[in-house]
């Protein structure tokens, strides 16, 4: 079970809802992923064009917890404004703080992320900041009182996977709140690896939505979460440089 603030979830996979080839594929992918937490962005309505279908309006909202993000914000103030708009929908009180500090790498601005998190905690939000994999920043965010830490594996949408497993491991070891590896996941092996490192969950979007078969990839990610988590709980063997026979030495048949 994944517990964030006072909520518990059976699934440790958090799924983004952007960039799917169609709503039909997206619905199936969400279904087979068994995710219970879905992220959304907050944007102006396109009211000047003919009414377009909206994915969220087609969801059974009783089944899912919405995790809106503050994507588009470059300052704490912008992030707070977006978070308040999201909350005013009456559909959610969780927020993924996402304050981008570099247009090219899309890496988060650590200072603005910290400031936004502080203000949103004061406003009573359940705060899940998307951060870089900085160990000290993660500690500082936890000290503020955030409800989960979401360090990136690598840049958003890059599919590069976990580029600094040691930092993630340090963050996971020190953290007293859930650690959800967010962004940069490319394939199921990255997801399984994050879970094997001891992450409490993984948040991904592009790895599923842009896969050749998003529905199949959603299922693969679900299984990777489960395999990685079981592997972590089971406790892996210690690596050795040389071979250690699995079959007994005793009773060898002489030549």
């Amino acid at each position: 079970m994944l517990t964030i603030a006072n909520r518990t979830f059976r699934s440790r996979l958090l799924l983004g809802t952007g960039k799917y080839p169609s709503f039909e594929i997206q619905k199936k992918a969400v279904e087979v992923s068994e995710s219970e937490i879905l992220t959304f962005a907050v944007r102006r309505m396109n009211i000047f064009e003919k009414s377009q279908p909206n994915f969220l309006e087609q969801l059974d909202l009783k089944r899912y917890t919405l995790l809106p993000n503050t994507a588009g914000a470059k300052t704490a103030e912008e992030a707070v404004r977006i978070a308040k708009l999201a909350k005013a929908s009456g559909l959610c009180d969780m927020i993924k703080v996402e304050v981008i500090g570099c247009d090219k790498s899309l890496l988060p601005d650590p200072i603005e992320t910290l400031r936004a998190s502080e203000q949103l905690l004061e406003e009573g939000f359940i705060v899940l900041p998307y951060t870089s994999d900085d160990v000290v920043l993660a500690k500082r965010l936890e000290q503020l009182g955030v409800h989960a830490i979401m360090p990136g594996a690598s840049p958003i949408g890059s599919g590069k996977g976990i580029i600094n497993p040691l930092n993630l491991q340090f963050i996971i070891e020190q953290s007293n709140v859930p650690v959800i590896v967010d962004a940069g996941i490319g394939s199921p092996k990255d997801t399984a690896y994050a879970m094997e490192l001891g992450a409490d969950g993984v948040l991904l979007n592009t790895a599923v939505s842009n896969a050749s078969d998003p529905v199949k990839m959603a299922q693969a990610m679900k299984l990777a979460i489960e395999a990685g988590r079981l592997g972590y709980e089971a406790g892996r063997i210690i690596e050795k440089n040389y071979g250690v026979a699995s079959s007994p030495i005793a009773g060898m048949i002489p030549s």
Partner: peptide, 10 residues
């Protein structure tokens, strides 16, 4: 006036 909604995002 801003009319805002939720769209797909990660």
């Amino acid at each position: 006036v801003e009319l805002i909604h939720f769209v797909g995002g990660g």
